[in-house]
Amino acid sequence: MRRRAADLWVRIGGGVIVALAVLAVAAPSAATHDPNAIDLLEALQPPSALHWLGTDSLGRDLYSRLVFGARISLLVGVGAIGVAMLIGTALGLAAGWYGGWVDSALMRFVDVMLCFPTFFLLLAIVALIGQSVANIILIIGVTGWMGVARLVRAEVLSLKEREFIQAARVLGFGAGRIMWRHLLPNALSPVLVSATLGIGSAILVESGLSFLGLGVQPPTPSWGNLLIDAKGTLGVAWWLTLYPGLAILCTVLAFNLLGEGLRERLGRS
């Protein structure tokens, strides 16, 4: 029962994500209009055959902007989690393998990082180093690696006592080789599950930052800054509020379904 539900989640989530990735890659041909073409005569038009999801206050086609926005959201989500995995895995491996003061120092650092509200840290660093797409990816990664580090450390601690790791040590393999060839591959699956869930929350964080005006800069369309326009046209143009939010919700939901489904399967096998 539970197993079947998990399979369904994986299929739905995975399907949505693949469809979205195709749409994002093919954005120039999938879009019906130039996402930045201003046409004031067509401003604030409700959805129609010409503009599938309506137009914004500058007459730009909302559907085309959403399609191009998908590129930013997926790029930031995947990129940020890549950075977080890199930092978290490296520190988690080091803490778990070396133990002792290295472990205590790194884990206290994790505790300290977790004391700050993530959004406070994000805003402070964005304001310091500026808000290009690369910076946003870096910042979300740098403030989001703590969970991965704890997870990897826990995996390493339990793997360390297993025979095949003991054997590798007895054979005199170096720490680097053991970590890279033996520990990492075995610790990877739970990390990948948490990464899948992390992509969803990174997309949420990016949209929140953009909505506050501290994310990706307009006129580059991102799902978060499309909603800035929505705030100004509240009660006038419902489509500007509804569709970008739905896009974020469905995408994050897809990543969460995929991640939870994978976790469920992993727990059984």
Partner: peptide
């Protein structure tokens, strides 16, 4: 699932 996936600022809007 909805709670974890909802952009709260959108819900607010």
């Amino acid at each position: 699932f909805l709670g974890f996936s909802m952009p709260t600022f959108w819900l607010a809007l």
